[in-house]
Design a protein around this nucleic acid. Structure first.
Lengths: 219, 219
DNA sequence: CCTGGGGTATTTGTATACAATAAGCTGAGC
DNA sequence: GCTCAGCTTATTGTATACAAATACCCCAGG
């Protein structure tokens, strides 16, 4: 979509992911239009998209609120993501192009570099991690699968706590990526799917650890 | 959403599912607005929803076209549906309420009745089949899973060829539903998931048979 | 015949005004 | 003090006008 609508989408999404708009907060189209400096029309567009991303929920009377994720919701989302990303890996294993395989290696090298230093470079880790998974999704060659998965990867809670991942988890993630590349190299669909399922599942527990640690600290 | 927007959505969706708007046809907001007798605003809304249902695809320049499903697309959609409905059954097995279980039995009895006569009552079969699967999805208690699955169950091609399903397939479908009810009765998540995965997979082959028969007949 | 440029027509994006609906509040009645 | 009716206000839905982008067509030039 074009400028104003995209801007509104990115703007509102950013406010939700950063926590500036807390879960449960009501979103008025007019108020958002003022903050985005566009009219209500593109804001409405953006809200619809965010609703389909499950970042926003709508009341019976069509009023919009920032979605609040319960612990069960989050577990649920990870479970689905694990299934779908495993399926993506399964399909990608037999379809991935040499150039894509090389790109995977490239991004994982950069992930390795990002976590090697004294302090891990979390933004770089997240960026190359995202790119890595995106290449696999592209290699899977299923627009439907891609469409479903993109609805699950935007988890505000996860983004806010990614900072808390410990070194050990980052290192393991890097290693699992290497195993994925090996599975793709062998064109072994079953292996790739297994690794991916475990990879996401472990990411869930890493998140849980980071999150409960944060909650405990807050008490 | 309210009247005009809902009306436009149902209207355009109907035209796509019935084949009145054939795959690949361009959809102009203004032309649709005239046919729906509403303004462009609710039509735009409806188009966005249909796009997220994957019934419409948009060109790079944001023009809308009726989605055309290749054979691979359809196989892909069934594969995903099989995975996700199996997951729904897995979750439902341990969460389903007695009233929901009874409702499943009720709808499957009506399915049995619909296919018992001289000529099968296909609309009744489709309706109770839909209700049956919907109850399972509700019992699974995952809004995310529900949101993902509803994007896959609206397959125009399938709707148009459902008429061609033969008696044997309908009978088997009815029987598999009975097995699902038995699995739910035992609260056996693994069993329920297995049956459901097979159930959808067989539906795919039933579709294939009906579709290729239709195509062969057309030649 | 093919190619490219330029202008026109079509189509979508955005802003704004107004209508419809739902939420919240105030005050009267019990 | 509680409840509910009725009004007020907030919020979303719809229509319309205009702006911007892009596709299409036609014609000139090679």
């Amino acid at each position: 979509m074009s400028r104003a609508s995209d801007h509104a989408y990115a703007f509102i999404r950013g406010m939700i992911l950063s926590g500036e708009l807390p879960p449960g907060a009501q979103l008025s189209e007019e108020a958002l239009a003022l903050r985005c400096e566009v009219s209500r029309t593109p804001v409405r567009d953006a809200l619809r998209r965010l609703e389909s991303d499950l970042l926003i929920r709508r009341s019976e009377s069509q009023r919009s609120f920032v979605a609040d994720w319960s612990d069960d919701d989050i577990e649920d989302a990870f479970e689905l993501r694990s299934m779908l990303e495993a399926q993506a890996a399964r399909r990608a294993a037999t379809r991935i192009a040499p150039a894509q395989l090389e790109a995977l290696r490239h991004h994982n090298r950069l992930i390795g570099a990002a976590i090697a230093g004294e302090r891990a470079d979390i933004p770089a880790f997240l960026e190359h991690n995202r790119a890595f998974h995106e290449i696999i999704l592209a290699a899977a060659g299923s627009s439907r699968l891609a469409s479903l998965l993109t609805r699950l990867i935007e988890q505000p809670v996860v983004w806010r706590t990614a900072q808390n991942y410990d070194r050990e988890n980052l290192r393991r993630s890097h290693h699992e990526h290497e195993e994925l590349v090996a599975a793709f190299d062998r064109r072994d669909a079953g292996w790739a799917a297994s690794i991916m399922a475990g990879h996401i599942r472990r990411a869930y527990y890493a998140y849980l650890d980071a999150y409960t640690a944060q909650r405990t600290a807050a008490e």
